[in-house]
């Protein structure tokens, strides 16, 4: 039972990151290999913010991360979004304008991903960084299942983020416009939708989700330059497993991947965690390429 609880925690982080990936995939129409670095850069911005505010202040009851972490997330989202929008302006926008192929965009993202990781190395050093040094005290939430209160709070936060994204896409005008663009950009323009504005919004939302995932992950474990790159395969696996373009599918996919990974850890195969998601992904592509909840193209 314990591994299910761990798996859900893991899944909630994968889901956040994968939903961000899904946003850019649907609207900008390419697999953003630099999404992992968005997550990592966000975590480092949040770490900076927490350090400035003062780690350990503002502890809220049993939850140790306290308000500084919650405040640092929006700060990190703003900072990371500025970086991401600048990169889009300098790299992806000219490529889009010159009608570059999807593969060119992916390759540029792959190059940017390498740059991002090494820029973190350059500015923050190669050692892992810790948000705080407290010793978490697990509580028994069910017979035989123990969880740290922070982890429960993180699962709750992720759930809130997922529900907000759902409501945003379904209920708001902006969300409806994004869905329209993801289905047919030309028709969206004909309807008066400003594609540039939608693209900016998509980057910001994708970034917000990734930064939230990165900050929470950094809080539970540590922040390091490769933290996002290591998450890339599970995120892609969740996306493909659930069916590209289907948000519920992505959440479901993240759940399966998260549980499978913690299952692997349970059976002492933690070294092969990333390979587990890859195997699941290949199996899905072989048997049901449109994913669990996806529609056939």
């Amino acid at each position: 039972m314990q591994f299910i609880a761990d798996g859900i925690l893991n899944a909630s982080l994968i889901a956040l990151g994968a939903l961000g990936l899904s946003m850019t995939y649907n609207v900008l129409r390419f697999a953003n290999f630099a999404q992992g670095e968005v997550l990592a850069i966000g975590a480092y911005f949040a770490l900076g913010a927490v350090t400035v505010i003062g780690a350990g202040v503002g502890v809220m009851g049993p939850i140790k991360f306290g308000w500084p972490l919650l405040v640092s997330i929006p700060i990190a989202i703003v900072c990371t979004s500025i970086v991401v929008l600048m990169v889009d302006y300098l790299v992806f926008r000219p490529l889009r304008n010159s009608n570059a192929s999807r593969i060119t965009l992916i390759m540029a993202a792959f190059g940017l991903s390498l740059m991002g990781r090494n820029l973190i190395h350059l500015f923050a050093g190669g050692d892992p960084k810790y948000f705080s040094f407290y010793i978490p005290k697990a509580i028994e939430i069910m017979p035989g299942v123990k969880m740290v209160p922070d982890d429960l709070a993180i699962i709750a936060l992720s759930a809130i983020a997922v529900v907000s994204l759902h409501l945003f896409l379904k209920r708001t005008n902006m969300g409806r416009m994004m869905r329209a663009v993801s289905e047919n950009p030309t028709l969206a323009r004909i309807n008066g939708i400003d594609l540039k504005m939608i693209i900016r919004m998509t980057w910001i939302i994708g970034t917000a989700l990734a930064v939230t995932a990165g900050t929470l992950q950094g809080h539970i474990f540590q922040a390091k330059a490769e933290m996002g790159f290591d998450m890339l395969l599970p995120m892609f696996a969740a996306l493909i497993l659930g069916g590209v373009g289907n948000l519920y599918g992505t959440v479901l996919g993240a759940l399966v991947i998260g549980l499978a990974e913690s299952f692997a850890v349970y059976f002492d195969l933690s070294a092969y965690r990333a390979a587990v998601s890859f195997m699941i992904m290949l199996a899905v592509l072989l048997v049901r390429p449109q994913g669990l909840l996806g529609e056939r193209e």
Binding site: A31, M281, L285
Partner: peptide, 20 residues
């Protein structure tokens, strides 16, 4: 497994094989 699908699946899968 991947060459019948959209081109980015090949990218993701070859990335996966390298990681694995």
């Amino acid at each position: 497994i991947t060459l019948r699908l959209r081109e980015d699946f090949l990218a993701i899968s070859t990335f996966g094989i390298a990681v694995s």
